[in-house]
Design a protein around this nucleic acid. Structure first.
Lengths: 151, 151
DNA sequence: GATGAAAAATCTGTGAC
DNA sequence: GTCACAGATTTTTCATC
């Protein structure tokens, strides 16, 4: 499906998505047109889903980040769907992950400060439907693995 | 620090980082040069940390994604640092988050299949230093919140 | 100090080979 | 896959507010 050149291009692209095709080409030992066509093929094939802006929320005044582990009420059939739909409506909820296991959902939530978080938690989080239990983890740091995957 | 135009540009940029400055300019009611200068200033100010490639690991043959909640051995002073350094050396560990609370670290790990995961878990995860406890959550889906933050 | 218009430099995407 | 090029885009300049 993917040959060696594809893998090298993908790795370089992942390392620096803002590099132009010419620069990627040089790093991969190919020409600009080739790199462009390969990237395009990977986009069409759904492997490359695009790019995402990385924003420093702290610099924007959001000093608090928490991870919430939510367990839902299993007696309600639609609990999962209802909860997800409602959670997606809360702007301060940046990310929602769902799991198989004891914990059903993990939410990443940001707030300007603890006072803001307290209000947010009471008015927007605890009011989400079908919650059976919540555990809060105060976030310290996020790190990306520095090793490239054996693509 | 940030005025109204900055916020609008940031929001549009976040919604579609691949749009050109000309397109962003039109959506924000400004000119291309102004948008470019504002974005540049936000990059220099550290608010915009760049872009990140979004890769579909499933399409690349990584069918399994798990979230591991790790508790470290609190009797060892350097446990945190040792663990983080070692965890960053494992290519299949995509993300490492650290917390204040009962759980110390969360790892996002991908594997090609359950057989691969089993080996990975035994040889690369359980061998990480100073682990006191691990809980595994099988990942189902990841969703982005659809509401823009009140920037 | 910030803006818009327009020029200059650079890059992308396409066609021919 | 490479080469060459037209068209688009980014980035700078400059006069202006």
């Amino acid at each position: 499906m993917l040959d060696d050149l594809d893998r090298r291009i993908l790795r370089q692209y992942q390392a620096d998505p803002e590099a132009g095709t010419a620069e990627l080409a040089e790093r991969c030992g190919a020409t600009s047109a080739t790199v462009w066509r390969r990237l395009e093929r990977m986009r069409e094939g759904g492997i490359l889903k695009g790019v995402e802006a990385v924003i420093d929320w702290q610099a924007l005044g959001y000093a608090v980040e928490v991870s919430l582990r939510v367990t839902l009420d299993k007696t309600v059939a639609r609990a999962y769907d209802d909860f997800l739909i409602a959670a997606r409506m809360v702007p301060e909820v940046l990310e929602i992950q769902t799991f198989l296991g004891r914990v059903d959902v993990r939410l990443s939530v940001i707030a300007r400060d603890l006072a803001h978080y307290q209000v947010l938690y009471r008015d927007r989080i605890l009011t989400l439907p079908h919650i059976a239990d919540i555990e809060t983890l105060m976030h310290i740091a996020r790190v990306k693995s520095e090793e490239a995957l054996p693509l």
